[in-house]
Amino acid sequence: MISLFYLFSAILLVFALGTVISTNLIHSALLMMGSFFAVAGLYLLLQADYLAMVQILVYVGAIAILLVFGVMLTRKGSIEESNLPNRYKGIGLLTALGLFGLLARSIYYTRFPAPPIGHPTQSILAIAQAFLLQYFVAFEALGILLLIAILGAILIGRDSK
């Protein structure tokens, strides 16, 4: 368990760093896919098996692929030079490190209460019940949001001719 956590965490952070450092957008996209797999592994460790499946389906299968398509459709100049940093590189790095320092300090000094006892054996059943009974309206709203997003994407993205 412990080694698996460190393995997934290492893959996740290394791949994510590679994604933002690489100057080749295709490499970035592929590295990002790998990091998403690692996230799914972390979910499994956290006993959120349904979420792990959704992560792979949606992020790796849909969003990452969509981004790769986007990269290919907006080709401009050399692909090796397609992901250059802008002039805020230094201050962006500083901000990110500063933010991490603050967050890490907060996490380190926070004493979390002890967890209660008990395990949900079937998370997928609980999720299904929650969605279809307790949070039905919110669930439907999410569906409508996605529908509108699809329509909007088609409307914006289609050829104006």
Binding site: Y88, I91, G92, T95, L99, L102, S106
Partner: peptide
């Protein structure tokens, strides 16, 4: 630039 200001502000608030 806006995002930068945003995050710096979040950091400051933190």
């Amino acid at each position: 630039q806006y995002a930068l200001v945003l995050f710096v502000a979040i950091a400051a608030m933190t």
